[in-house]
Design a protein around this nucleic acid. Structure first.
Lengths: 192, 192
DNA sequence: CCCATTGTTGAACCACAGGTCAAGAACAGG
DNA sequence: CCTGTTCTTGACCTGTGGTTCAACAATGGG
């Protein structure tokens, strides 16, 4: 009962996320966010609380979706190297897709709010740790299948892939030429 | 003639840089900056103009110093791999040095002001391109000296090292464990 | 020692950020 | 259709951000 919402909260969070990605947390004013969502400021506050709470909702949702897509690609059948390559290519494609180059909210938040925002930082570093673990597991699978040399240090490999992934996301914010991106991906895969 | 400055402009820029690194451009208020420099707001404006001009001064100086240190390490004698490793280690050490983990101003700016600030973006991507070129040149030197296999694609290698470098700088903002950092560096070097 | 020049500063300014609220609007149930 | 509930909205409020300025402090030169 009560008056129904005129907007889809999910859609609203998605729109707000785009703003946070593009301009960062500090530069995303309530007016900007409300306009992007297509709703009055008051409604935003009524629905989500403070700006920081809205941001955390965006960040959590983003992290969850990112991780889900990630895992889905890693869980597919086929050689381990191909699966990992597809994850990198998906990230690169996401960056290229939007001409505004909003980049990755996790990475952007890691650099913008590394200090000053313990709550966001927790989500960010947890998310990064999860990614690393997921990579580490698929590498182990590759080792069992004989696709990855078992004497290699899988932890180190996962770290390296993780780091490359983050670097790619930063490069993706600029209009980095596609050749460099491809080269980095191939280099990382070959290094496994 | 005229009243002499009570502060060293160089030192002021350095102090301001620390603030910008830690909190980002948007969250660095004039009050915060003036306090960090230890001078009244008015003096800052008198000496540097707008906040954005001060920021650009910081960014340019930071990029120049970073690049100089970089080149200096790459120009030292010894095996190419060792020189490159030292560059990475220097970056990691810089991140570890300050417990506040301010990270790299270039990388932070790349993610925070990728859109909305064309002037800063120019400096950022130019700086990144220069780094890549420097790496590319030392790799070529290594190829001539027989330390790097000549049939390798040096451009691709430079891209990969560059990307790893950026990833490291992001990881450096968190309290990433030192083992991971070391593993990433070794992995990158081995991949040459 | 007076003056031109350059620095320093806190007060003052306007705009906007972040957030609240009172008024009204759209429902469901009785 | 009246009522309780939930939404919506723009006006409104307070604080601060970014910036300017008038008044005063150090200098060196003539």
């Amino acid at each position: 009962m009560g008056r129904p919402k005129t907007f889809d909260p999910d859609e609203a969070i998605r729109a707000a996320t785009r703003v946070f990605q593009a301009y960062g947390y500090a530069a995303s004013s309530p007016t900007l966010l409300a306009d992007a969502v297509g709703v009055g400021k008051g409604s935003l506050y009524h629905a989500f609380g403070t700006k920081h709470e809205l941001f955390m909702a965006c960040l959590n949702r983003y992290a969850a979706e990112e991780y889900a897509e990630f895992q889905q690609l890693l869980d597919q059948p086929g050689p381990v190297r191909d699966r990992i390559r597809r994850v990198f290519e998906a990230a690169a494609a996401a960056d290229q897709a939007d001409p505004a180059r909003p980049g990755c909210l996790i990475v952007n938040t890691a650099t913008e709010r590394g200090l000053s925002d313990a709550e966001a930082s927790t989500v960010v570093w947890d998310s990064i740790a999860r990614t690393r673990t997921a990579l580490r597991e698929v590498l182990a699978e590759g080792a069992r299948a004989g696709e990855v040399e078992t004497e290699q240090d899988l932890d180190a490999l996962a770290d390296m892939l993780q780091c490359t992934m983050i670097g790619l996301r930063v490069l993706g914010r600029g209009s980095a030429n596609q050749d460099s991106i491809r080269a980095v991906i191939e280099s990382a895969i070959e290094n496994i």
